[in-house]
Amino acid sequence: MHELGIVFYIIRDVKAVAAENHVEHVSTVVMDIGGVSTVVPHLLTDCWRWAADKEELLKGCELKCNIIPAVTWCDDCKQEYETVKHGKTCPHCHSGNTWLLRGNEVEIREIQVKELRC
């Protein structure tokens, strides 16, 4: 349900970048979404469609979600493992002394703008 709030943040940030770069229309926004970020990509794109079409700058603009698989690091056996499969406990040595390396991202990677060239 927080996807709508996140969409408002994306719109605010994209508007700022567009103004800085004198862009009038954005065709695509590319997001990096971590596998354990608690953001559900299809809910994010649903909320995006509803909110983005209300903005001249973002009418019809597509939101693409690039999923970053979550990886955890075990401090005891110094190995990485898949977070979603094993959670907080290391599958190699069963330690709980583990830290998320990546997979928590909710980042705007880039925006794409179609330019008319003669």
């Binding site: 994306i10 994209v14 065709s27 980042e107 705007i108 990677r109 880039e110 794409q112 703008v113």
Partner: peptide, 11 residues
């Protein structure tokens, strides 16, 4: 042509 503006920023 598509121009790409990189942002790389957490929302």
């Amino acid at each position: 042509e598509v121009k790409v503006i990189e942002i790389k920023k957490s929302v």
